[in-house]
Write a protein that binds this DNA or RNA. Structure first.
Lengths: 149, 149
DNA sequence: TTTTATCGGTTGTATTTGTAACTAAGCGGG
DNA sequence: CCCGCTTAGTTACAAATACAACCGATAAAA
């Protein structure tokens, strides 16, 4: 057989996409269980809720762009959040294709609770690392994710 | 409504699990398309292939442990790889519940090609960062992922 | 032994996701 | 105005995933 011109010791845990996925999964598990058990929410629902809570009124399309999530997932998440009475839709007067989404009072309350949990969870997760390390981590991850700094 | 005792500027891109997921997704997209289009493989199949290529004969259960993947996913991935003639199963003599998995010649060839692509892809992904930064990134991700150093 | 529990792995079914096609509304030139 | 083209969002159907129940083999207990 032909010689492989690859490092023979290239471990899968050195492959950055793999490492990133493992870290992402591990870091999400606990928080995911929290919003799932407590509020019956799916991941996309939590993200939509977060965007609306953080940035106020948005359209589905705007959330798609910001979160890099496909519009069908957003569509279903919005429908689910509406069914839970966490948000309401309002057709835009000047363009009736678009719908502005707002959180209801209940939605805002849930957002606040989840935000609080998220911050606490985040702080715990980073507590083993120095500030300088965390800063580098955030910067590199943002660059890899293609987020504007 | 009650005052929220959370930082009002807590952005979702500061929430580490979110950032990790975005980075993981972004970093995987291109390589994922590569093995999907070229070999018709799913992510779990690539991972199983990688483990067998890197570590040699393993049972399904051993791959579950190493990769933190549920056994039903492994079971289906193994079946798919077997259908593609990338691996064979061999019932263990001393315990007929267990099956040792080996790559076929074809499987090894595909492994070599994908490994080569992975290394190249990895190098590209990291090329914007210094060695020191990458070292910190790997260390922190491994810690978050709960991998033994 | 028989009985019971456990282990490695598979299969069935309900959810969830991805892809493409669709509806309805606006836009833009003739 | 009307035709074709784009856009916002939904829906239908196929593919993938999660979860639980399952099967056969082994081990441990009575």
């Amino acid at each position: 057989m032909r010689r492989m011109d690859t490092r023979p010791d290239f471990d899968i845990s050195h492959f950055m996409p793999y490492l990133l996925n493992q870290a992402a999964d591990a870091s999400s598990v606990e928080f995911q269980r929290f919003y799932k058990e407590r509020y019956g929410m799916l991941r996309t629902e939590w993200r939509v809720l977060f965007h609306l809570g953080r940035y106020g009124q948005l359209t589905a399309g705007e959330i798609c762009e910001r979160a890099h999530i496909h519009k069908t997932k957003i569509s279903r998440a919005v429908a689910a959040l509406e069914a839970k009475r966490y948000l309401t839709r309002e057709q835009a007067a000047q363009d009736r294709r678009r719908e502005y989404l707002h959180l209801t009072v209940t939605g805002k309350k849930v957002f606040g609770e989840l935000l609080h949990a998220a911050e606490k969870f985040d702080a715990d997760l980073m507590s083993n690392f120095s500030n300088a390390e965390v800063a580098i981590l955030r910067r590199l991850l943002a660059a890899i994710a293609g987020l504007k700094p």
